[in-house]
Design a protein around this nucleic acid. Structure first.
Length: 492
RNA sequence: CUGGAUGUGGCGCAGUUGGUAGCGCACCUGGUUAGGGACCAGGAGGUCGAAGGUUCAAGUCCUUUCAUCCAGACCA
């Protein structure tokens, strides 16, 4: 039978869509650029949430919630920030509908026009800082460390499932500090949390680095990022942490009385990751058979497929499965016994592979007689026949191996596609092949823009923890002096 | 918004020089099957994106419009 998913076909987004739909993660909604996240997909997001949330709390962050609607006037305070989002805001202008006087349907009641329009949050800096103003009076009130899990809306010109949807789910952390040093340390700490999460939970090797001024968040003095490489060699920004300086404090007049009695503006950070992480997960690990989930994130870690001909065999196999399931549950492993009796085993194998379940166990009369089971791993598609005795321990160990292997594979792929480049002509052809190029940059926005215009490549980051290369050199484009190499790539 | 493409059962598609819609998958019924996406037989399901026009006759030709996808601009 023809493969339904062909990850390495020319049209990358097509296979990506196929996996999203066929693996039952999400589907298109009736609203332009929005998604319905289906239960299986949402379960993955919930796992991401719970692991991240725990990590945030370990750094002293607390969860809070701020309103979805932001008065337009709040938006006019931080000029730079607004310029960055103004073009993609959904605006609420009325608060009531009425029956259409001409007959069918409903229309917006012109009488119900709002005094002041409301903006559906594209991000919450403005409303949060207007609230923080009332919370912060003294140095004793600091720091304030809040995070919120919510949805935001950005009316993008072009959308892609998970990577860029008009509405998306995310978390946004917003902190206020007494000193610049403390705020910068917080921004650095949080990007560290993201990097650890990406590597250990998502099995996604990422590069931590600073954004160039051009690529910074609107209103930030410094933006730290984790950059991941997808299987087509393109870069994906998977999370950011911003040092906002005193920009928002000054715009929203947030001052505190210091120990010496003087009034000081607070220093701010903000940081966020979104359901885009789901896109990263899909595009980093999937293969021709569908999704490949790292065990830590898999809603179902082990699926058990019974093979039988008679009711007696079925009962015997399912009975044995229940035993193994109980043993695995005791170890914290989530198991699904696929006892649907209208489907053949081969169909089930293919279906669970499509959904990325890390480990599959198959058991039939033949095995039962021999006291063995077949255990297959999703990442390598290898099958092994192991003894039923102690299979729970074997599987627990295998899950850890699968997690590690998925990471190692992604890391090896990335390392094979990161290379230095010192020649502009070579750069122009090499960058189109995908992968990251480590090149010298003179530090100017003009050069960065010229390179982008010529090749679509952008500076993904100035790395701080991998591929760091601080050496004298000459800019790949301008030939001017450079103090180190930065990461160039074509990005999603 | 600018280019290009596509709209036909739930999904994926075919439909010739106009002649009154067909295939695969999925679905329903019965049977045989079951260690990698089963097979046989039967069955149900579509005013062909929408509106208008040409014609004895439109899925097919013309006009308008809407939607989606791809490539840009924008962006997590």
């Amino acid at each position: 039978m023809a493969k339904e998913i062909t990850p390495r076909s020319e049209n990358y987004s097509q296979w990506y869509n196929d996996i999203v739909v066929k693996a039952d993660l999400a589907e298109q909604s009736a609203v332009r650029g929005c998604m319905v996240i289906k239960p299986y997909g949402y379960a993955i997001w919930e796992k991401m949430q719970s692991i991240l949330d725990k990590a945030f709390k370990e750094t002293g962050v607390q969860n809070a919630y701020f309103p979805l609607f932001i008065p337009k006037s709040f938006f006019s305070r931080e000029a730079e920030h607004v310029a960055g989002f103004a073009k993609e805001c959904a605006v609420v202008t009325h608060h009531r509908l009425m029956n259409n006087p001409d007959g069918k349907g409903v229309v917006v009641d012109p009488e119900a026009k709002l005094e002041e329009e409301l903006i559906v949050r594209p991000t919450s800096e403005t409303i949060i800082w207007s609230v923080y103003k009332n919370w912060i009076k003294s140095w004793r009130d600091l720091p304030i460390l809040c995070n919120q899990w919510c949805n935001v809306v950005r009316w993008e010109m072009r959308t892609r499932p998970f990577l860029r949807t008009a509405e998306f789910l995310w978390q946004e952390g917003h902190t206020a500090h007494a000193t610049a040093e403390e705020a910068q340390a917080k921004a650095k700490q949080m990007v560290g949390v993201y990097a650890k999460f990406a590597r250990e939970t998502m099995a996604l090797p990422v590069i931590v680095g600073h954004k160039s001024p051009n690529e910074r968040f609107a209103g930030a003095l410094d933006t730290l990022t984790i950059e991941a490489m997808m299987q087509d060699g393109k870069a994906l920004q998977a999370g950011t942490s911003h040092f906002l300086g005193q920009n928002f404090a000054k715009s929203f007049d947030v001052q505190y009385a210091d120990k010496d009695g003087s009034l000081q503006y607070v220093w701010a950070t903000s940081w966020g990751v979104s359901t885009r992480l789901m896109g990263a997960l899909i595009m980093a690990h999937s293969d021709d058979n569908g999704l490949v989930l790292p065990p830590v994130l898999a809603p179902i870690q082990v699926v058990m497929v019974p093979i039988y001909k008679t009711d007696e065999e079925r009962a015997a196999v399912l009975g044995k499965f229940e035993e193994v399931k109980a043993a695995l549950a005791a170890k914290g492993v989530s198991v699904r016994i696929d006892d649907r009796d209208t489907l053949r085993p081969g169909f089930k194998f293919a279906e669970w592979e499509m959904k990325g379940v890390p480990v599959r166990v198959a058991l039939g009369a033949r095995d039962l007689a021999a006291g063995t089971v077949e255990v297959a791993r999703r990442d390598t598609l290898e099958k092994a026949t192991v003894s039923l005795e102690g299979v729970d321990a074997y599987i627990e160990d295998l899950l850890a191996k699968v997690q590690q292997n998925i990471y190692d594979k992604a890391l090896a792929f990335r390392d094979a596609n990161v290379r230095k480049c010192d020649d502009w002509e070579e750069f122009k052809t090499e960058i189109q092949k995908g992968g990251f190029l480590l090149c010298h940059w003179d530090g100017t926005a003009e050069t960065e823009q010229a390179i982008k215009d010529a090749t679509k490549a952008t500076i993904r980051c100035i790395p701080v923890d991998s591929y760091v290369c601080e050496e004298e050199g000459r800019d790949i484009f301008s030939g001017k002096p450079s103090k180190g190499r930065v990461v160039f790539a074509i990005a999603y």
